[in-house]
Amino acid sequence: MGKYVIKRLIFMVFTLFIITLMCFVLVRMLPPAELPPGDPHTKIVEARREALGYNKPYLEQFGIFLKNVFTKGDWGVSDVLYFGQDVFAIFVSKLPATMIVNFYSIILSIPIGIALGIWAALRKNTWVDDTISTLTMALISVPSFVYAFLIQYFLAFKLGWFPFLMKEGTDWFSWPMFVSMIPAVLSLSLGVIAGFTRTTRAELTEVLTSEFMLLARTKGLTKVQATVRHALKNCMVVIVPSIFGEFISIIGGSLIIEKLFSVPGVGQLYLNSINGRDYPLFMLLTVFYTAIGLVAAIVVDISYGFIDPRIRMGSKK
């Protein structure tokens, strides 16, 4: 187990390194953001670019970049969007909004998703199951911005229950802020709910037909006892890791939902950095998103082993 974890971690760092290198070179190959003519900062910016090695070979530039990141935590300064500001500070200031919105969404969606999945599995092939499965299927197929539109149009505009966009400000835990987050939270949740419902239903239907369930019933357990103690416990082997994965990805957030509801978060920052061609910001966020994907995958894989010791890690596929 320990050996497997270490192996995975090493490979993760290696992957991250390769991807960062590729992106770095590709980004540096692009002409750097132009300064407005007659800008008073031209000299400083040029001196800084000189120090970052803009006219040296790419690998040397990458070396300087890595050295700055590791020794000073310096990811560079923003070129376009937040001219002259430290990108890492901007990034950190955008984290809370994303994390809070996604946290609410997870708190809401995991219980509902699992409950719906259990319900559908227990009523398999009835109208309950059909309805839940169809809805799940529809929600999974369609990207979130389509139903975010419906939520925004009906709940926020027609019924006027919620504000159209998220409230500005940094009072993250105030009531008006919470209310203004609800449309975004709902739009994020639907997809997650559908995902959990599908996984739970699939797992539970499979477990419910296995022989140990029959044994549990024959030894005198009621249906509820058998389901809770035996079936659900087995389902959790699959569900719990995906909960972990979900929790890690909360800091990533969703690009589109954040744009639609103007959540001042990381996702929106990423989109803006792409559309605004702010390369240092883009570079930082690319590394960030890649890292999240990698960490989430590792945590999911490793947690399988912790939850169910029968699953042996590192064995050949």
Partner: peptide
């Protein structure tokens, strides 16, 4: 498999953005 693994981890939005730029 390792090559595929590494490529698989690159976020799609990064790929499409960089391809658009280059």
């Amino acid at each position: 498999d390792r090559i595929a693994d590494i490529l698989y981890e690159v976020p799609f939005i990064v790929v499409s953005t960089l391809f658009q730029l280059h």
